[in-house]
Design a protein around this nucleic acid. Structure first.
Length: 497
RNA sequence: GGUCGGGUGGCCGAGUGGCUAGGCAGAGCUCUGCAAAAGCUCGUACAGCGGUUCGAAUCCGCUCUCGACCUCCA
């Protein structure tokens, strides 16, 4: 595919990407609720849509990427206490809500940086957009699709469904929803069970509360995304992303709200990433099977055999297509770690290869390499198939290593092909997939200087065939976690665990 | 119960009618003072049963099985 196609959850098929405004792309992704630490499951959408963001930029689009921070508590549904999640926890921990929000926002941002996720263009907070949310609710009431009861405002889903295709995104049928949902004890303020809150009256103990035309309260779960996306991307924008579990009711509600408020649907392409599972079950709070990102990076969790570098986690996520489930296991992460190290080593070898000059002695190989390189674009254009891009890079790695190792002649590739090869790795591995070295280069490299002393000593011992000394140096370093590698040309390199 | 989506070699995971996925692990070999690394070669998979077809992992039907959503959830 020579042009970008993506799978639109709304139409359930791949569609060619055609932005509303040529040259520009607007993308909104549901961000974190900062009432706790992010876990591995949360990492998937942020890495997935970071790659979407990166690829759109690579294609030359001017991208505005908006990802919200939910720092206002959502109300709980019927059958539970009407309490603000953030407010509740704040009381337990004796913290101000905003103190809690600040803490977890900081941790979230830290993790995003470790993942090498590019910063969104705008990261709006729900509490910073109460006015916009109230304005949107008022508009919906004016249109006659919302009603107030006791200081709360609800969206009239039943009425909406009579005029609009409610349930199309998530494959729901309104009549079934009306039947399936059963009444719970207590008086229900809603006209129908399918209705959802736009604004919720705050009970006395509720900490987070704002003044509104309907009294003191707080916004409903869904309205913030609609209000903020419209504010920063316009009332019709290109891509809305998020986890599959948000399709219903969250995204379905967003469509309904925005359609009434603006007179048309808000989003051109809906994208949903699949879940990360653990032992076949979705990782999530309610399953009590989450591994926090900080735990993943430190190895400090009963299920973890070791710590996993953020780049390893990123690579592990990208080795699978974003619409497939991805099963967590130590084995899978460890496989990704080894794979990434090998691939990155090849990339470094590639960057150190001398420039080629000729037209290439091996025509078949040149064609093969060129083919693998060009395919990367096709794979990305086919609904962001990062798994296939990575597979192609692995096809190229042996070519690179063989040129260095001498199994392939130095002049086998033409100057152009070698240049294309370098460009492909740089573009896809670094820029599009967003991979980084596992170890950051150090400015003041004292260790490097020490290593070069040891390497010189060992080289000297080897030329004297003093195997005892040379093995001693290698073994002692290995015990310290530094692996020496003798190279064909008499050189020596090392890697650290 | 309703809706939807899966079941691929030891493990993870691409792929949707004929053409190599890839990674990790494993086996053999080459290189090497010995290693490591690297390179080469190898397994031959598509839940089961029918059907369509010249040909199906890929389409259709049934069965078994797992999961997601229907409640907060990335």
């Amino acid at each position: 595919m020579s042009e970008l196609h993506l799978y639109n959850s709304y139409s359930r098929q791949k569609e060619k990407f055609e932005p509303i405004v040529a040259g520009y792309a607007g993308m909104y992704v549901c961000g974190p609720t900062v009432n706790g630490e992010s876990h591995l499951g949360h990492a998937r959408p942020y890495v997935t849509f970071d790659v979407v963001h990166r690829y759109l930029k690579h294609l030359g689009y001017k991208v505005r990427y908006v990802r919200n921070i939910t720092d206002a508590g959502h109300f709980e549904e019927e059958g539970r206490t009407d309490s603000d999640r953030i407010g509740e926890k704040a009381q337990l921990e004796k913290l101000e809500p905003m103190e809690l929000v600040h803490k977890y926002t900081g941790i979230f941002h830290h993790c995003m940086r470790l993942f090498n996720n590019l910063s969104p263009s705008i990261e709006p907070t729900a509490t910073g957009h109460i006015i916009e949310q109230i304005g949107m609710i008022e508009k919906i009431m004016q249109e006659g699709y919302a009603y107030e009861v006791n200081g709360s405002v609800y969206f009239d889903v039943k009425k909406y469904a009579q005029h609009y295709p409610y349930g199309k995104l998530s494959g729901r049928v309104i009549d079934e929803l009306l039947e399936t949902t059963r009444d719970l004890e207590g008086q229900d303020e809603k006209r129908n069970k399918v209705d959802f809150a736009l604004w919720k009256k705050a009970p006395p103990q509720h900490i987070q509360r704002w003044q509104s035309p309907w009294g003191e309260g707080f916004p409903g779960w869904h309205i913030e995304c609609s209000a903020m996306s419209a504010k920063y991307l316009g009332d019709a924008f290109d891509i809305h992303g998020g986890g599959m579990d948000l399709q219903f009711p969250h995204h379905e509600s967003e469509i309904a709200q925005s359609t009434i408020a603006h007179g048309h649907p808000p989003v051109r392409y809906w994208m949903h990433n699949n879940m990360i599972t653990i032992n076949g079950k979705k990782m999530g709070r309610s399953y009590n099977n989450i591994i926090k990102l900080t735990e993943l990076f430190s190895g400090n969790h009963p299920l973890l055999e070791q710590a996993y570098h953020p780049m390893v986690v990123r690579f592990y996520i990208l080795q699978t297509h974003y619409r497939s489930t991805l099963d967590f296991s130590n084995e899978a992460l460890q496989a990704s770690e080894k794979a990434l190290k090998r691939l990155w080593d090849s990339y470094e070898v590639l960057n150190n290869l001398p420039e080629a000059s000729g037209k290439g002695s091996d025509e078949a190989l040149n064609l093969q390499v060129i083919g693998f390189c060009h395919e990367c674009a096709d794979f990305m254009n086919d609904d962001f198939n990062t798994a296939k891009v990575i597979a192609n890079l692995f096809e190229l790695a042996p070519v690179i290593n063989s040129i260095k190792g001498g199994q392939i002649a130095r002049n086998a590739l033409s100057a152009d092909t070698l240049q294309l090869l370098k460009q492909t790795f740089k573009t896809y591995l670094e820029e599009v997939l967003g991979m980084q070295p596992l170890q950051a280069a150090q400015a003041d490299d004292k260790l490097g200087k020490v290593m070069s002393v040891l390497i010189d000593l060992r080289k000297d011992a080897r030329t004297r065939k003093d195997w005892a000394t040379s093995d001693l140096i290698r073994n002692q370093l290995a015990a310290a976690g530094i692996l020496l590698k003798d190279e064909k040309d008499g050189g020596m390199s090392y890697t650290m665990e």
